[in-house]
Design a protein around this nucleic acid. Structure first.
Lengths: 211, 211
DNA sequence: TTTTTAAATTAACAGTGTTAATTATATTTG
DNA sequence: CAAATATAATTAACACTGTTAATTTAAAAA
């Protein structure tokens, strides 16, 4: 009995080791450029051994996807200490934005890449738990803002969705390289540096007048 | 002399034929799933012949990227007949959204994929002409709205960027599959169908009160 | 008609994700 | 303890991928 438990732990240890190597490579070279063979070499095992621990490559992408949501969730923890709902909403967006800029590869796996979501669809559970939970945090905050007089006569779900879409839009345009090109053509050099912050502050300004 | 001109035309003809086949496959199976060999087979030529007409695979992605912007530009043409600036802005967003939903693969090549933008960066011209032009249309419309009393005391470039980010955010969340999961968890079945329209109408409602 | 030039092709390289068959390693049983 | 069994890991193999270099074919010029 004790034997088997130890075996389970050993298995988990190898699982973790593989994921650690996959993470290093994914975050360094990106998903497509990271091959199973490279991961295996880094982990000191045979390429096909990975398939004894993960179903396929997208399975590993999903594992990192989950890890990313854990990190983001931890960063959201500080929001609990923010009493004022609107301040909390503002801080939430800032954290989200900062997370995307500081962890672009995690962000890509979490919100841009199709693979992790497709992996979910291929599995029995067709629920995107991580995303739904994160969206719920936003939804609750928006609902709290409504109680304080914001977003009158608007569906809080629609408001939350729009805010998410806006911030995600900024992040993805930035990370995919589109934003820089447009910024270079339409904004002064001084403004280019902090386009994202400027845009976000503009958003806050707009929302602020929606009392 | 005449000979050479005819040759140039022949070359262009083959170029078009290759691109046509690439387009079919890209729009059917996606960029990654489309191989040079499949394109060549469809065009009835040898795989390596493609490299006599296009630098590499990302070059063809960029060619389709340009084609997509031509289509979108044509659909934007009707906006010229809309006198009222705010109505024009509303219509612009609707056209953009519809284009994304009706041409998801074009949209992906134009606004999500890194390859076309990266191809630009590798070339001498580091300008994203198509994107900048499209953004300019939006920028002018926002500026016109400002003259009519909207977006007071706000930088029109910031407003335009936020609107683009919001609509793009909705489109990309929808196309990558994230939106459907969240909608399934938080919205009733009746609302799921037209989440995008509902969200966009919500946006218009919010902006409308920004006079 | 021969020479030159350009276009298209085949062969080849160095990889990719993944499955099936095989070997090595523990674990359990006689 | 030795033999049989179960499991973990490996090698071999498949059917691909984008791309380059060398070679052949076709057309134009001399």
């Amino acid at each position: 009995m004790g034997r088997k438990e130890k075996n389970e732990q050993q298995r988990e240890g190898i699982r973790q080791m593989i994921l650690k190597e996959a993470k290093n490579l994914f975050l360094k070279d990106g998903y497509e450029a990271t091959s199973m063979r490279k991961i295996a070499q880094g982990a000191g095992i045979s390429p096909t051994t990975i398939y004894l621990y993960y179903k396929d490559k997208s399975d590993m992408a999903y594992a990192l996807h989950k890890e990313g949501f854990k990190i983001l969730g931890k960063q959201f923890m500080v929001l609990q200490s923010v009493e004022n709902a609107f301040e909390r909403l503002k801080a939430m967006g800032k954290i989200y934005l900062r997370f995307a800029l500081e962890n672009p590869d995690f962000y890509e796996i979490m919100f841009i890449m199709k693979e992790p979501i497709e992996f979910l669809s291929k599995q029995d559970t067709c629920e995107w738990e991580e995303g739904e939970q994160a969206f719920n945090s936003l939804l609750n905050t928006v609902a709290d803002c409504k109680k304080e007089g914001f977003f009158k006569e608007m569906d809080e779900r629609i408001v939350a969705l729009n805010i998410w879409a806006l911030v995600h839009g900024l992040c993805s345009l930035k990370l995919q390289g589109h934003l820089d090109h447009v910024a270079a053509a339409h904004l002064g050099e001084d403004m280019q540096r902090d386009v994202l912050d400027d845009a976000y502050n503009g958003l806050i300004l707009m929302i602020s007048s929606l009392r």
